[in-house]
């Protein structure tokens, strides 16, 4: 049986309903706690009553004002985390590659470069336009990396895809600095495009990215069933009545919408899309219809918790969430590489 993850101990198509339900409730609880922590902790730690008041819109005391300002940031972390995780799940499913992730494949960098070029060269200012541009950039680099990575014998092996992604990321990062260096005034912008953070989250951002993210979620969820067939290999999937090319294109579109729009608001955040799907497969099994909502929950929790950690460990200053996820995600990446057999790389 060919499965998207070659790990015999998790080769369970679907865990029993009882187990799935348990993990689902647990994940919901974790997300709730993470969101609570996110509005409570920061350079100033606030109490329960201030949280309740702040969330309901009161800004009389400093504590309440702090909570009020943390709410959009928390919401942004939740939806971006969910978007990146689902995007990673879809990419791993489409490419049948355990190392696929919007960051490693260089898709985030493509979105970043497109936004930077759009802002500096074409003078784009409205956020909605930037999101369009980011999605276009993400789509271009996704196709480009996949084409390079799948040339030659063995198709898109993890090594070839990761290398093509790394090379493309490096080229794009150099281009980003080349575009942005002549403008000293946008160096703060560069900073967010280099690292990635949710610190600047506002309701405006969320409203503008919302429709794109929603469309991405819907498309991804609709392709979940087909991704299950795709996991059996192209021939078998075709035998099961799937139009393989269509499924590939459609689900890739969903993934690109999600990570492009997320990157447009936060800058490139790596490894969330890599780590979360693997953990989810261990917990709920390989069925994409369960995997995706569960990934969304867990991704949201991961990014929110990372953001809280970044705010707490280095008080009163903050560590951008992109740094935290890289520090958590890279060891995990190494762990997955170590588990694979050499001939599968």
């Amino acid at each position: 049986m060919t499965l998207s993850v070659k790990e015999p101990d998790v080769a369970v198509l679907r865990r029993p309903a009882r187990v799935r339900l348990f993990w689902f409730v647990a994940a919901l609880a974790v997300l709730g706690l993470a969101m609570l922590a996110s509005v409570a902790f920061g350079s100033r730690i606030v109490g329960w009553s201030a949280i309740v008041d702040g969330v309901s819109g009161l800004t009389d005391t400093i504590d309440q004002a702090a909570v009020f300002k943390r709410v959009p940031r928390t919401v942004l972390a939740v939806i971006v985390g969910a978007a990146l995780a689902v995007s990673g799940t879809v990419m791993q499913g489409v490419t049948r590659n355990p190392l696929a992730d919007p960051g490693i494949l260089g898709v985030n960098m493509g979105a970043s470069l497109a936004v930077v070029v759009g802002m500096t060269v074409f003078g784009l200012t409205s956020a909605v336009n930037t999101i369009w541009v980011a999605i276009l950039g993400a789509a271009f680099s996704a196709v480009f990396v996949y084409l390079i990575g799948s040339l030659g014998r063995g198709g898109a092996t993890p090594l070839k895809l990761a290398l093509a992604g790394t090379a493309t990321s490096a080229a794009l990062a150099s281009l980003i600095s080349a575009v942005i260096l002549p403008r000293a005034d946008v160096s703060e912008l560069f900073r967010s495009w280099q690292i990635g953070g949710v610190g600047g989250g506002s309701w405006d951002n969320i409203r503008q990215a919302g429709p794109f993210l929603l469309a991405g979620f819907v498309i991804s969820m609709l392709s979940a069933r087909s991704l299950n067939s795709l996991a059996l290999g192209d021939e078998l999937a075709a035998g099961l009545g799937e139009r393989v090319a269509l499924v590939r294109g459609l689900s890739a579109l969903g993934a690109v919408l999600l990570c492009g729009a997320a990157t447009a608001v936060t800058g490139p955040i790596m490894f969330v899309g890599l780590v979360v799907p693997h953990v989810c497969r261990l917990l709920v099994g390989l069925d994409h219809r369960w995997l995706m909502p569960f990934s969304a929950l867990l991704g949201a929790s991961l990014l929110t918790v990372s953001d809280v950690v970044g705010r707490v460990v280095d008080r009163p200053s903050e560590i951008d969430v992109g740094i935290i996820t890289a520090l958590i995600g890279a060891p995990f990446f190494i762990y997955i590489v170590r588990r694979q057999k050499v001939r599968e790389l």
Partner: peptide
């Protein structure tokens, strides 16, 4: 494997 692990290290 060495190259892939190195890529992960570099990212971190």
């Amino acid at each position: 494997r060495l190259v892939l692990i190195g890529i992960g290290m570099a990212a971190m």
